[in-house]
Design a protein around this nucleic acid. Sequence first.
DNA 1: TGTATTTTTTAGTCTTATCTAAAAATATTT
DNA 2: AAATATTTTTAGATAAGACTAAAAAATACA
Lengths: 222, 222
Amino acid sequence: MEEILTQSEENYIKAIFSLYQQTNAPVSTNDLAERMETKASSVTDMVRRLSEKSLLLYTKYKGCELTKEGERTALKTIRKHRLWETFLVEKLKFGWDEVHDIAEQLEHIRSVKLTDQLDAFLDFPKFDPHGDAIPDKNGEIVQREKSCKLSDLELESEAIVIGVADGSPSFLRYLDKHQITLGTKLVIKERFEFDDSMEVELNDTILSLSSAASSKITVQLV
Amino acid sequence: MEEILTQSEENYIKAIFSLYQQTNAPVSTNDLAERMETKASSVTDMVRRLSEKSLLLYTKYKGCELTKEGERTALKTIRKHRLWETFLVEKLKFGWDEVHDIAEQLEHIRSVKLTDQLDAFLDFPKFDPHGDAIPDKNGEIVQREKSCKLSDLELESEAIVIGVADGSPSFLRYLDKHQITLGTKLVIKERFEFDDSMEVELNDTILSLSSAASSKITVQLV
DNA sequence: TGTATTTTTTAGTCTTATCTAAAAATATTT
DNA sequence: AAATATTTTTAGATAAGACTAAAAAATACA
Ligand SMILES: [Mn+2]
Ligand SMILES: [Mn+2]
Ligand SMILES: [Mn+2]
Ligand SMILES: [Mn+2]
């Protein structure tokens, strides 16, 4: 079969994959429209097309979910996206806040050999610059043991930053400014009930974090 | 202004640039259609659109030629194409016969910083894997001194291969098979009038080349 | 259970990029 | 110069992917 998909189709597939992961329920037309920054009517059209290509199952008024084939497609695109992000940061010296939009384009380049050679060139990385797992050639992804949100940690616990739940440039630059990056070790020194903010120690300094910030930082206890 | 162009528009611009270079005359609708592997009517449409965006000058029945702006656009795309080809060969270990189609996609990625960082990563290469000059950030290209076709050389002259006039995989693989690559040194040992074929010495062996082959190899006298 | 609200689909339009077939302009021959 | 051949443009269609406005279905809620 080996269907050739347009960039738009690949973007939709990725969005459906990601929305489905959040709820484990069929993705609604409206949710998808919001994610894709388009109109519900456009989504209905596209979902019909993708269903026609048996990349997803669609029932009128009931939303859609990917087929096995659709999932494979999503994982291929995600693999490429994250490999390119890794390339941009590791080899081309981009900041982790600058790579998403470019990877959003690069992920659509069609060449299995390119993807696999890039993977090898990068030494088969398991995680991208934001801590997200990179699917391997077969779509397999490393499952991480016991990670949690920084905001969930108790007083005096020590943890290492392993990811971010928000990849927006503004948030990433905020983290940069405060010297928080993947691998940063921190200790919870204080927690304030009234606004769920906390103070953490890192690099021998104390940093105050809002609940909005701490809930978007993924950590692992040391 | 900074017009955003579609991939198709960029491909047309590149084709017009290249066809114009061959004849220094306006590019005819039919020639362009043949190069783009499309129909003349499609070309008329596209040329109108590009003229509307003042990337080229078009006179009905008289063909078209790029404006300064169009030329800049062409050079930007060519720069990206050749940088990516270089990346694929130098870093990802592709053969020079495998990179064109992939670069044909990569050349459309929009990010000035990406292009410039890639350029730096590759150490500002002046030529791509086929010996073609890579325009720099400002669109400037290195002009080579006295190069000529291998087929133009006289008996006993010594020369170095610096390029190919045909980038097709089949020709490039033919060269690979006979150990001819950029930098290969060869000496003309024999020339046959009746079919314009020749025998050249390289790596201490004698190789016979048809006129079709020798006229597509660009060399420089040593 | 009937009404109001929200969600989703349908219908119709637009743009880009393509195509085929026919008409018009240009170029080549006789 | 007229006839013929070639090139190019026009006219009309199609498909993807988007939009708006209106209709229909599903859900919420009084
Ligand atoms: Mn994308
Ligand atoms: Mn990422
Ligand atoms: Mn291209
Ligand atoms: Mn090349």
